[in-house]
Design a protein around this nucleic acid. Sequence first.
DNA 1: ATTCATAATATGTCTGCACATATTATCTGC
DNA 2: GCAGATAATATGTGCAGACATATTATGAAT
Lengths: 236, 236
Amino acid sequence: MHSDTGKPPTGWQAIRDDVVARIRARDWPPGGAIPHEAALAQDYGCARSTVNRALRDVAAMGLIDRRRKAGSRVALAPARRATLDIPLIEAEVTARGQSYGYALLSRDHGPAPLAVCARLGLPQGAPLLHLTALHLADGQPHMAEDRWINPEAVPGLLDVDFTTVSANAWLVRNMPYSEGELILTATQADAPRAEALDCAEGAALFTMERVTWIDDRPITLVRQFYAPGHRVVTQL
Amino acid sequence: MHSDTGKPPTGWQAIRDDVVARIRARDWPPGGAIPHEAALAQDYGCARSTVNRALRDVAAMGLIDRRRKAGSRVALAPARRATLDIPLIEAEVTARGQSYGYALLSRDHGPAPLAVCARLGLPQGAPLLHLTALHLADGQPHMAEDRWINPEAVPGLLDVDFTTVSANAWLVRNMPYSEGELILTATQADAPRAEALDCAEGAALFTMERVTWIDDRPITLVRQFYAPGHRVVTQL
DNA sequence: ATTCATAATATGTCTGCACATATTATCTGC
DNA sequence: GCAGATAATATGTGCAGACATATTATGAAT
């Protein structure tokens, strides 16, 4: 379960682990201060910068709060923090040993709905490329996506043949390094979606909505509806 | 939207931002190598350790891959990484300016279902404390939770009055610093859940399942069902 | 050509020192 | 006692240099 990947860490990581262990063991009580860097450096027999490196990591985990002059104190209610890795769907599917498939369901270019424009911060009726597509795992529907892309911000977009390449894959290759917002929610399958995903109408679909920008220029808005039963697993 | 919180960063953060900008601008092409630390240090007129600090951050963002001797290259398919902050429900609710309420729905102590024991890695029929509770926002149902706790690993558990304190809050206070696994999914509301959440039966509920351990001893398994329409927002 | 030892190289880490910065503690005059 | 100036202090950041480690490139021997 908790696979020790081998050897115990050394150097600053060893210090970090020791500090974490002492916090978990309540060696330093919640809300209390821990020794300052210089003292710890002496304890561990290393330079203060090494302790600093370790404590910075512990702070990043949310276990301690650090403030200048005030020192470091053990967090009372440590923030739980989970990191979601969002791979390409293809990688996600093949990583599970399933075969990956993709099908474009529809393609439209024209004025987008008001809600979509608003979400992207574009004027009403801006012309966007609208794609709906289906991602398959072992031939079974795995995820249905509904995507708008801004041709203004994506040169060459309208010439791409999205029947063979998924928009996601193309965008990652051609417009990488964008920033964005991710929204997780659950939606009920409406009739067309239920048909696409081959599930009951009204089924609960895990849903991810992403909006991405490059330099404050909106690139794409995509809503991805996963087939019922999909689970996203992460450590915290 | 993209709130510049004020001044431009200085020092190593400025270098990090500049490197990120140059990658986004395709100054260094995807898959290509970027100058090595010593060269960059000379460019920026700083010490190599400062560049190292900056590049470590860029690597943590997934924009570059670094390997000894091979140098740093721009990632071809940068992993999208989103960080979920999981606050206490109470904080989550009050942060939105709503009033928070809590109600215990049921409390049981006895052998747990097989599936639950398996999930926690406990022998079949282990006695666990089973709680169901409701969290309210402005008096409206906000989230229903279904929780099993292992009294073996949580001293004093059976004496706690969970009618006034939520299990989550108590555990965070008394058993902090645990590790765990988080699963995100969507479920349909069954009859009792629909009644608790005051929503239609069959509604799509955003669901979080958490299992936490301390030192490989299972603490708790909780499934939290959010009222329809709940959205988790995060940056990436 | 293939294999294996060896050198070269970029990153990883550590040290000791210095100064910057934020925040708390203390002292001062009123 | 209180407000405001001043000192003290813990962390944040930076530098130059050193060695460690992983990995690639090179050259020698077969």
